[in-house]
Design a binder for these strands. Structure first.
Lengths: 339, 339
DNA sequence: TTGTATGCGTTATCAG
DNA sequence: CTGATAACGCATACAA
């Protein structure tokens, strides 16, 4: 069934049906009603492909996610959920592309097949070939995260450098002198994953500025790795009294390791860092942390993209989130024995 | 840039370019090469909307997920990931529709706008209006989960009734007489959520058949709820010695509650149930459970859908997964004191 | 081996 | 207020 069929049954031309649907020109109440009743009766809806072809836009956003094979972290999931939700609110659909390496077919379809009006990219590397590719092809895009030189791209990001530095400052203020950073996985950092690098930089700078002794370790994004990592950390660096973590998925393991070692938080050991809110709140006791506002960020990414689509010549916009460190219950004064 | 532009630059007709791309008719090596080089040089890719309009198919699968506002459970996420991955392998794209209630615009776009060749639906209710709607519209679909009368729909599901019964049998064999079922949330069960109903039925039947004393409770899909629920359960039914759970998201809370109460698993208390593998393995000690093969199920759903698209007249196919209960370390003989 | 012409379902321009 | 018609970009039947 198509618009011609509706027109035929209503005894009007196809254009009139089209105008009834779009409302872009006045139609007499009488014919409007007649046409509408035929539409309702047959349950007619315009063919999206034909509309897209004619209008030159698909009302679809491409969302490039990490290869689905590896389980998405909660933060990634938070981004996906909020992007989908924000897009739906704007009556946009979301086309998912699970793309990892180079020359991914799914990515290429979205980038060059005009299947989407614009693209949202996440898990950005400092040097990201997907960003390069999208720029080359000329598809409007917004990144969640940013590359090394983000000046004239559109992005939404978390100020990892600053947040981690704030956590270090907080610990230093509490008298801690020997602290550790639990970073994301070694592979991710090696690949040039932005948050990993920026967290490390913020840690190093703050530790240096406050004259502390800092240790940093990479840790895979899961609980067992967190447990092992925490144990190894305390074993090799028995002097540390506090942890800054940017690896939320490892948190349950960190907790387990501390519990098993009989370490009481925050009496014996302090924990803080950057995490999605529910990870911080699920920690026992609730964790003092900068809560990454995944929900706002996904929505902001969509908003930026729609703005970019509406005014293609607009200068690049960025949103850098630096949420406050929410004081909960995992940080306290350095133990007297370690002072 | 379009196919005409390529044709013009290569000095051939548009059809020849089209045939070079599709390979559906022989083209002389010489012109093929000339055309290909122009295509490569300009980075030309056919317009997906035009292709879809012409061919009458979009090479896109619609995936209807729960409203994104509520965090997806790991099992749901597993389905999404595996569907996306399997679709990508078949060179299909996935269009996401976060749809909850009736008359969802995003759902309607997918159902009636011919934006997708077929649809995969998850979180199916015993009476599901989305299923009805899709049948009415005539869009091919496959459900992950099934309705009350699933005979002539296409679906992939987990045999909750049977799996829960097996868990009960296992506990009965170990001598447990008073056991509890931790179901999904009360809202979900009230809404007619299939797994909730079928788990309850399997539990009731098995408990009855083995002459046990069974208690069942609903629990929200998160750790804090699991903790509270477990505590209440032990408080109100101090006699229970084992738990069957189909609520994986509550597991960390269950674990925490047991630990806080000083209950040693499986010496004092046994735990088993249905869960995605990593939840079972993350439990301490590793949990004896029927592991839901989310990965296989998503892939199977895609496979079924593609088969249905290929042969529209084929009779309905179903896949019912009944994975074995993997013996790990959370079940043991009933404590002597409770025998 | 290649070119010409048609139509997929829409929207919008131009006439009436 | 409404209708005829020309694109949008592509694939393919038909011609040559």
């Amino acid at each position: 069934m198509n618009i011609g069929e509706i027109a035929r049954r209503a005894g009007v031309s196809r254009s009139t049906v089209s105008y009834v649907i779009s409302g872009r020109r006045p139609v007499s109440e009488q014919t409007r009603r007649r046409i509408q009743s035929v539409i309702d009766e047959l349950g007619y809806r315009p063919n999206a492909s034909a509309q897209a072809l004619k209008e030159g836009r698909t009302r679809t956003i491409g969302l490039v996610i990490p290869p689905a094979s590896q389980r998405l972290t909660d933060m990634q999931l938070g981004f996906v959920a909020s992007v989908v939700e924000a897009a739906a609110r704007a009556d946009y659909d979301v086309l998912l592309s699970p793309s990892g390496g180079d020359h991914d077919r799914s990515f290429e379809r979205i980038a060059t097949g005009r299947r989407a009006d614009g693209v949202i990219l996440m898990e950005i590397l400092m040097e990201d070939h997907r960003v390069t590719r999208l720029q080359q092809v000329g598809v409007p895009f917004v990144t969640i995260g940013r590359t090394r030189h983000p000046e004239d791209t559109w992005w939404v990001d978390v100020a990892y450098t600053e947040l981690v530095a704030r956590c270090v400052d907080h610990l230093a203020d509490l008298g801690h002198r020997r602290i550790a950073l639990m970073n994301r996985s070694a592979e991710l950092v090696a690949a040039g994953y932005g948050p990993g690098h920026r967290a490390l930089r913020g840690f190093a700078e703050a530790v240096d500025r406050r004259g502390l002794h800092g240790t940093d370790v990479c840790c895979a994004d899961n609980a067992p790795a967190g447990e092992e990592c925490m144990e190894r950390l305390r074993e090799r660096h028995p002097g540390i009294t506090a942890l800054v973590t940017v690896n939320e998925a490892a948190l349950p393991g960190v907790q387990r390791a501390l519990e098993r070692a009989g370490v009481v938080v925050p009496r014996d050991f302090s924990v803080t860092g950057v995490a999605a809110r529910h990870w911080a709140e699920d920690f026992r006791p609730p964790m003092t942390a900068a809560d990454v506002p995944t929900h706002d960020m996904g929505a902001a990414a969509v908003e930026l993209l729609l703005e970019r689509l509406a005014t293609p010549t607009a200068p690049a916009r960025h949103v850098l989130h630096a949420p406050p460190v929410s004081l909960r219950a995992t940080t306290g004064p350095v133990p007297a024995s370690s002072r």
